[in-house]
Design a protein around this nucleic acid. Sequence first.
DNA 1: ATTAGCACTCGTATTCGATGAGTGCTAACA
DNA 2: TGTTAGCACTCATCGAATACGAGTGCTAAT
Lengths: 340, 340
Amino acid sequence: MLTNRQLQILQVIVDDFVSSAQPVGSRQISKKDWITFSPATIRNEMADLEELGFLEKTHTSSGRVPSEKGYRFYVDHLLQPQIMSADEVSQIQSVFKRQIVEAEQLIKESANILSELTTYTTVLLGPDVQRHKVKRFQIVPLSEESAVAIIVTDNGHVENRVFTLPEGFNPSDIEKMVNILNDRLLGVSLQDLHFKLELEALSVLKQHIHTADAVIHSLMQVTSGQKEGKVYYAGKTNMLNQPEFHDLNKVRLFMELMDKDSQVQSLFKPIDTGIQIRIGSENNHLAIENCSVITASFGAGDEHGSIAIIGPTRMDYQRVVTIMDLMRRGLSNALSHRND
Amino acid sequence: MLTNRQLQILQVIVDDFVSSAQPVGSRQISKKDWITFSPATIRNEMADLEELGFLEKTHTSSGRVPSEKGYRFYVDHLLQPQIMSADEVSQIQSVFKRQIVEAEQLIKESANILSELTTYTTVLLGPDVQRHKVKRFQIVPLSEESAVAIIVTDNGHVENRVFTLPEGFNPSDIEKMVNILNDRLLGVSLQDLHFKLELEALSVLKQHIHTADAVIHSLMQVTSGQKEGKVYYAGKTNMLNQPEFHDLNKVRLFMELMDKDSQVQSLFKPIDTGIQIRIGSENNHLAIENCSVITASFGAGDEHGSIAIIGPTRMDYQRVVTIMDLMRRGLSNALSHRND
DNA sequence: ATTAGCACTCGTATTCGATGAGTGCTAACA
DNA sequence: TGTTAGCACTCATCGAATACGAGTGCTAAT
């Protein structure tokens, strides 16, 4: 168990290092006016904290830097909600005041504000499309051999894909088919769609349309492709302003990672509801081993998603957590009242 | 007018500098076995070429580097088609062999291969949606107050947007309205849609539906939003491997530019058909003043778009032009035969 | 007209010493 | 026994001095 004094010192070191990016020395700590003990005492305590694994040195005679364990402890025990300026609060709330109809647009705006306020990078994981339910099914023929299939979900998302019509397909069958499909598939979630098409719709359709087999298989191709939700980024280049990214190799690794939506998706998906923090190696990825990811999920009813902020491990956790919590509540709120 | 010897020297300098990124000295040039004259002679010629503005020095006693004017001359007069390895040719053609139904998918694949083969960054400008024509108009109600409007264009693109329904709107009017709109708007290009809605559709609708005014205005909001085509990137991080981007500031500027689709759109849009090259300051943008952009437009019938490659001014023009030409023809071909 | 020879320039890499922030330890102190 | 002043020591950073070498421009010889 850490003594009160050790807690104080750890807190100062993290806070100082977060804002200065420079190793923190004993003299610097003693300057804080609520610190009553001498640099020598602080040095002793720091040596202990280092032995316990909360601090590190960059070289033999440098100041101290929080270790991952140090950040973890700070985040778990020392975090205290920050007071935000009225200006910033109103900036956040301005998004929710505007009457935005489309959920997607609302969330994107939030992500932009989030990176602006934090100066970190925001990753926005779109709502899991697979959970949405079919509201309407539509097929629009384009030519003799191709048509576009459209699926509207219950909350307004539209999925569409061009597919080829089988030879000898009778265009007049389309309407019949669409009716049957709408009848059968209403309310089915997109993730179930694939199977429902094969198991239920196919047999019914076969009775009415003789090329049904081929069409359904084309449609099944359509439904199989869209496994992942969309990923949206804001403030991607903010990371370049962080001193820890003065190294081009790190920049490259980071940017390459950010280009792979599927990897980003799995790295940034929240494991639980609420706000979570993953520090450094906890992220399990080389490209962001010196980064922390803070995720927040939000939602109301069917419409939910998550926002993540990524910055260096030396990130302003207090501020980010406070802002994200505000954002999370606001978004959930806005989404649930949207259709009243 | 340049002498034959000057042409030879300019060619060697560009070629060498392109592959080595180091200023080229007289000795190095004389080593080429088809160069028959001595370093001293070469130095004299280089001094002349510098006076003419085709070459530059990085400092008083360094080798020569092509100037923008030098590249321009090289590109205009010295470019000769490269012979590509059978391996690479087949890699390109593999895309077109696969039977891909959706034009967008096909083009994206091409862009990926393009950046792989060139090690530069590919920017893909989607077909100009505004030119497409309405094939089908559809409205799907989501709740009492909202609905999603869907526009399918003649080549299978789907535009959609959620909009609010006016109070007191009678849901049963939707079908009537959709019918009228489909009737009136079939074949209208998206860029005209906005006005047609206001000028033609509105008056007709008013006769049948008393809330038509409000609905049309909601719809007009939908049609006004989608001014720009989509932009797709491949190999964004390739630029980081170029030695000219070892400077973090340049990286930042470049990445920031690439995040702004609308700016990228206007910078990379080809002015003419065929292959064009814009060198350095010809691009008129600070962030890419040391870059060259090679654009190629392709298309068949209604479906056309353009691909651009961006790299440092010290880029392998011969190779890129050869590859892009192959790609351009392939794409145009594939698109025109797609629906046969 | 071409080229060998040579003095000169300038970027790069290396070494060396000075500086200063910061530590750990010891001994004095309350 | 916990705290602190004092001091020797470490190590990153910076600037000056130096050597090195690739490359040029000029002159004079071919």
